[in-house]
Nucleic acid binder design. Structure first.
Lengths: 94, 94
DNA sequence: CCGTCGATTCGATGGGCATCTAATCGTCCG
DNA sequence: CGGACGATTAGATGCCCATCGAATCGACGG
């Protein structure tokens, strides 16, 4: 895995509020952005910011449908991250 | 896993320099602190700071031997973190 | 008991980032 | 077309934290 993507994922997971949002998205196969805005005590602008970070990290995909945006967790990237973490912190790494 | 510890781990992994140090420690069963100071372009004060964060997160243990400190990765906590990550980001989480 | 050395602590500083408001964009509906 | 609504962007602000230098601590060797 690319070093920059790995770091983006680490940072994306590091903010509690952003992680909570990710966790919320992960509970269903898809979540509408407006639901997040309704459920979290955070302004739309900030939600949008977090979505961009999660998207840049590859952790979520954004599907636009008319006015609405729908978020979806990319489970493959999540699995890749965990593999990379194990790899980098294993004893036999060169 | 405690929520605070989970967040501490996430944050501890998020800083690239600190992760590099953790990765370095993970390569051997134990690393002397002065080795880290020698190998990384970072002042002792900053290394000490990172060690405190990694320690608070439970990711490393510090063994003092005379003047020297020896760092060791706590692999169990690492495994716990990965399990927790999977659990929190799985679809069937309540 | 003093000097040295590894490590820690303290206080200051600078940069990054989460958050906000306001403005803008894009889409839908009348 | 024009208003409404969801989303994004831009710019400002305040906080957290990585980093540093200097001071201190603790252990060891003369």
């Amino acid at each position: 895995m690319e070093d920059t993507q790995f770091q983006r994922i680490c940072k994306a997971l590091a903010d509690p509020q952003r992680f909570a949002i990710l966790q919320r998205i992960a509970r269903e196969s898809e979540v509408a952005c407006m639901h997040l805005v309704a459920e979290f005590p955070i302004r739309p602008a900030t939600i949008s910011h977090h979505m961009r970070e999660l998207s840049k990290a590859g952790l979520v995909e954004i599907r636009k449908e008319g006015k609405c945006a729908h978020l979806r967790v990319v489970r493959g990237v999540l699995a890749q991250y965990q593999r990379e973490l194990r790899k980098r912190l294993s004893k036999q790494e060169l």
